[in-house]
């Protein structure tokens, strides 16, 4: 394990029955780096991301986050997860509590802050994502873009070192996408380490330090946005970009 990296993945394997979805992935992510992952549907992007915080249990290999091997059964996975924020395609806000309580639940329950401190913090994060006035509403009354921004605020409230995003804008109406991407750009600028699965090539070009192309459970090609988008080396990459950029 190398101390220079926030996230280090070594020879990661994951199968569902006989379907080997991840076939040996190696990836290092430096602090403050923004990595965007692109690739065709079913290539294993979500599965990879979910292996990073053990929502899926890997079948082989190692995942080090902040120096802990999450595959090690002696590691307290709850402690590691506190440092990894995750944002889902379908937001997964808790409908049984207000926006504010969604954000304060984890910090309060895990003893990170008192209720009052957590609420003050939560309002700061809501302000950051531009939704301060929605603190006391039920999340079910929000639009998709607002929900996703609350979800980001909820993840940030645990003050994570790394943020994982799994297609955060795919379930949104086009006019909402900009708001969410705007918040993510801001986070990147502030130095957050981010791994983002996305179909938003514009965002990847503009924000990513590195773009990783997934294909059939393997990393086919990776590099700077210019390298991947302007000078793709692998025919699979070219093929994929042709399809997504020329629709």
């Amino acid at each position: 394990m190398d101390k220079r990296y926030k996230v280090q993945v070594k020879d990661l394997h994951k199968s569902y029955g006989s379907n080997e979805v991840l076939q040996g992935i190696d990836l290092n992510v430096a602090p403050s780096e923004v990595v965007c992952m692109i690739g065709p549907s079913g290539s294993g992007k979500s599965t990879f991301l979910r292996c990073l915080n053990r929502l899926e249990v890997p079948n082989g290999g190692h995942v080090y986050v902040d120096g802990y091997d999450i595959a090690d059964p002696k590691v307290n996975i709850n402690k590691v997860r506190e440092n990894i924020g995750m944002v889902f395609q379908h937001f997964n806000l808790f409908p049984n509590m207000s926006v504010l309580d969604n954000i304060t639940l984890a910090p309060v329950q895990l003893g990170k802050a008192t209720k009052a401190e957590a609420e003050e913090e939560a309002l700061r994060y809501l302000d950051l994502v531009g939704l301060k006035e929605k603190a006391n509403v039920n999340p079910q009354t929000l639009s998709g873009g607002q929900k996703q921004r609350v979800a980001i605020a909820r993840a940030l409230a645990m003050k994570p070192d790394v943020m994982l995003f799994d297609e955060p804008t795919s379930a949104l109406d086009p006019e909402m996408v900009g708001d969410v991407l705007g918040v993510m750009k801001q986070l990147a600028k502030q130095g957050m380490t981010m791994i983002v699965v996305t179909h938003e090539m514009g965002f990847a070009k503009q924000v990513a330090d590195r773009v990783v192309f997934f294909h059939d459970g393997k990393i086919r090609e990776q590099g700077t946005p210019e390298e991947i988008f302007d000078h793709p080396q692998h025919p699979d990459t070219r093929n994929f970009l042709d399809k997504v950029l020329n629709v």
Partner: peptide, 24 residues
């Protein structure tokens, strides 16, 4: 997805169950 969101915040199983899953 409710389980996943709760657990990925670092909530242990019983807290995810009692605070998020059980009320719903």
């Amino acid at each position: 997805g409710q389980w996943e969101a709760a657990r990925s915040l670092g909530l242990p199983y019983h807290k995810a169950l009692t605070k998020v899953i059980a009320p719903q």
